[in-house]
C-alpha cells in the first residue's frame, strides 16, 4: 500500500468534470484499489458520485491511498492529475 497527500487546486473544487476524470482513471486499474481520504472520510475514487458527494473544495488536502497491482504507478498517475488541476 502506498499513499501521497496532495492539494486540490481547481477553483471550483472537485466538481463534475474533475470527479469524472478521476473516477475514469481510477476505474481503469481494476486490480488496484484507489481511496481518497478527505475531511476524515474515505472515498472510493472509482465511484464518481462518492467523489462528488464528498464535496471536496479548492484548497482541501486529500490523501490518496493505492493498494494493489502497480500501486506506485497508479498513485503517481492519480497524484499527477490533482497536481495539474485536472487540466483546468
Amino acid at each position: 500500500m502506498v499513499a501521497k497527500t496532495v492539494n486540490v487546486i481547481n477553483a471550483q473544487g472537485m466538481h463534475m468534470r474533475p470527479a469524472g476524470l478521476l473516477a475514469k482513471a481510477a476505474a481503469a486499474h481494476k486490480e488496484c484499489n484507489v481511496t481518497l481520504k478527505v475531511n476524515e472520510k474515505s472515498v472510493n475514487a472509482k465511484a464518481v458520485m462518492q467523489i462528488m458527494s464528498a464535496c471536496i473544495k479548492c484548497g482541501s488536502t486529500v490523501e490518496i491511498v493505492c493498494d494493489g497491482v502497480d500501486e506506485q504507478a497508479v498513485l503517481d498517475e492519480i497524484a499527477g492529475m490533482f497536481e495539474s488541476g485536472f487540466g483546468e
Binding site: 468534470r17 469524472g20 473516477a23 475514469k24 476505474a27 472509482k46 465511484a47 464518481v48 458520485m49 462518492q50
Partner: peptide, 16 residues
C-alpha cells in the same frame, strides 16, 4: 458536452 459523458459514468457508478 462532457456532462453527458459524466452521465454515462454515473450510470456505471458502483454505489448507484
Amino acid at each position: 458536452a462532457q456532462i453527458f459523458e459524466i452521465h454515462m459514468m454515473m450510470l456505471e457508478d458502483l454505489d448507484y
